Computed example of a mutant assay.
Amino acid sequence: MTEDDGGHSPFVKNPFFYLVVGGDRSFFGSLNINVQYYLRQVSDYHDPQGQADPVVRAVAIQEAVVNNQFKRFQHGLTFRISDKWLNETLEGEIAGIVSLTRSDFVIKPKLVYAINDAWKSTLGANLLGGEDTAFYGRLHDNSAVFFEVKFSF
């Protein structure tokens, strides 16, 4: 439930129902696979593109994108696959979210190497993409590659 329980204001997030179903499983000791399906249904949905006033329509579209409520129904998949090698000193992972409704996505690959008990290095990326009017697509310029060195004592 939200402040706009009737879905009348194009400037306030509408009430919604969110469902996530999934599972994870480990194989061969260290390989882990996690997959989930999600469904979001916006109650009292009104298409932001249907606003008559062009100024209100432009703001309503941006509000719907930011609130991830551009469509009445949205669904997609999340996943995470990880494994360890070299006596568990090297860890690899790829995780992501793929929207099947709007064709936008987040993909996050990462490698972590334990140099010794105190030092770890990480190389990874956060890759976002899709249509400009999609939740993750509008953030595509925020995609990044990173490198980290961590010392623990």
Rank of each mutant, 00 (worst) to 15 (best):
M1F: 14
T2K: 13
T2F: 06
T2N: 09
D5G: 05
D5V: 07
G6R: 13
G7V: 06
S9C: 08
S9Q: 05
P10D: 04
N14F: 06
N14I: 02
N14M: 09
F16G: 06
F17L: 13
Y18G: 03
L19G: 05
L19W: 10
L19F: 12
V20I: 14
V20H: 01
V21F: 11
S26V: 09
F27Q: 09
S30D: 15
S30F: 02
N32L: 09
Y37E: 10
R40F: 05
S43D: 15
D44C: 10
H46M: 12
G50F: 03
Q51D: 10
A52I: 14
V55D: 13
V55N: 12
A58C: 08
A60Y: 01
A60S: 11
I61R: 08
Q62M: 09
E63A: 13
V65H: 00
N67M: 05
N68L: 04
Q74R: 11
G76P: 03
G76M: 00
L77F: 11
T78Y: 07
F79L: 01
I81Q: 01
D83K: 05
K84A: 12
W85M: 09
L86I: 03
T89Y: 03
L90G: 01
L90M: 10
E91C: 02
G92N: 09
I94K: 00
I94T: 08
I94L: 12
A95Q: 10
G96P: 00
I97M: 02
R102M: 09
R102F: 05
D104C: 04
D104A: 04
V106W: 01
L111R: 00
L111F: 10
L111K: 00
A114K: 02
N116F: 10
N116I: 10
N116H: 06
A118I: 05
G124I: 08
G124H: 05
L127Y: 13
G130E: 04
G130A: 03
E131I: 01
D132P: 06
T133S: 12
Y136M: 10
G137K: 01
G137E: 03
G137N: 02
H140C: 02
H140V: 01
H140N: 14
S143P: 03
V145W: 09
F146I: 07
F146Y: 15
E148Q: 15
V149Q: 14
V149R: 08
F153K: 14
